[in-house]
Design a protein around this nucleic acid. Structure first.
Length: 292
DNA sequence: CCCCAGTCCTGCGGGC
DNA sequence: TGCCCGCAGGACTGGG
């Protein structure tokens, strides 16, 4: 039983629902402010994708008032007084900050705001896979309407969840990541949720019993809500930060993610295993989460 | 429609 | 000591 005790090393938690919801709450102070300046800092890195082009974006958001700050799955949406929206998509390493960023090199956009408690809003992105978009209501609907983005994981009912995923042959862990079926879950929380639900990650969706769907749904809510209370997960590479550039602390409460070889905290007997599903790591306890 | 592999990008750790 | 390679995974795309 010489189980290797491994430490997660380059694990970098990515903004999923709890992290993006924490970002949203962190920038609520931008509501009712006016965008007075728009800056695109020069950088030695490849520029990130901005829609429309930067000049048009700057011209169209200048002097607009931010009416609301919303979350759409893993994206932050600022509703402007002309009905258009600014959408920030953090993807792997994007952050929305009201405080000083982790470094100046990776600031992609800086908005100066007037009239509220928040005077700057910055989009910071180390890897640069994130996107920034200014969209009309029609563009928003066609890109991220209900046909493209499923119901939010905090809002979906167990019936809806089962209706959307229940007939699929795909492994439950892979299906939970499909944003068109269910919005907000990413690789980290999928493993955590299935562990709490005591469901094996490789179980095909159509094989889950009604009881298991109930457990998955309940675990999804409890894990996501608990993670929001701890302001999300900041792993060893420290990438994810809140709007105030502080670390989240849910990583201290992870049960399986990035804990390969460590003893399962639920049964205290088996070692956490790591497998690859759809080219992504999945972590689970083979004792607590049985296939049959 | 369903499902999977490949692509984008930077930083970091391990191996040599 | 430094270089190279693999890995991290969200969203999208193209193919079977």
């Amino acid at each position: 039983m010489g189980m290797p005790l491994q430490r997660g090393t380059k694990g970098g938690s990515v903004p999923e629902l709890p992290e993006v919801e924490t970002m949203r709450r962190g920038v609520l102070g931008a509501i009712s402010t006016t965008i007075t300046e728009v800056h695109w800092p020069k950088s030695r890195f490849k520029p990130i994708q901005v829609t429309p082009r930067r000049n048009a974006f700057s011209r169209r958001v200048a002097r607009r008032v931010i009416r609301a700050v919303e979350r759409l799955g893993k994206r932050i949406v600022l509703r402007l007084d002309d009905e258009n929206v600014i959408a920030f998509e953090p993807r792997m390493t994007g952050l929305l900050l009201t405080a000083d960023p982790p470094d100046d090199d990776h600031v992609r956009l800086l908005l100066k705001l007037q009239g509220g408690s928040v005077s700057t809003l910055q989009f910071w992105d180390r890897r640069g896979l994130g996107t920034i978009s200014l969209l009309t209501p029609a563009q928003l609907a066609s890109r991220w309407g209900p046909e493209k983005v499923g119901p939010d994981a905090l809002v979906v009912t167990v019936g809806e969840l089962r209706q959307r995923l229940g007939r699929r042959q795909t492994a439950i862990k892979v299906a939970l990541l499909d944003q068109a079926s269910l919005a907000g879950i990413g690789n980290l929380y999928a493993s955590e949720i299935l562990h709490v639900a005591l469901v094996h990650p490789e179980l095909p969706c159509r094989r889950l019993s009604a009881r298991q769907w109930k457990r998955v749904h309940a675990a999804m809510l409890s894990v996501l809500q608990e993670a929001i209370r701890y302001e999300g997960s900041t792993l060893s590479d420290g990438t994810y930060r809140t709007a105030l550039n502080s670390a989240g602390s849910y990583q201290h409460h992870h049960r399986v993610y990035d804990r390969e070889g460590q003893t399962c905290p639920t049964c205290a007997r088996s070692a956490i295993r790591r497998i690859i599903q759809s080219q992504r790591s999945t972590f689970f306890c083979p004792r607590c989460q049985r296939k049959r």
